[in-house]
Amino acid sequence: MKFSEEEIQNWKCETCGEGLVMRKVEFSYMKGSFHAELPACPKCGLVLITEELAMGKMAEAEKALEDK
């Protein structure tokens, strides 16, 4: 999952006032879990999930896990 620098730099966590940095984010769904490098607030850990990611890779992974 690639993120353009621009995409990351465009966003700020409102509560913490921090710019986003790449972090290792853990996901789980049904009986599966995995992780990915995603932009997140370095302070509170608020993760940025884009439309592309949610409707693309994540949706695919959900389908795969649902049918396991």
């Binding site: 972090r23 984010v25 769904y29 999930i49 949706a59």
Partner: peptide, 13 residues
């Protein structure tokens, strides 16, 4: 815009 997913974020390292 709006979108959704069912996968859960369980941790950020």
């Amino acid at each position: 815009n709006a979108y959704c997913h069912r996968m859960n974020v369980t941790g950020v390292k």
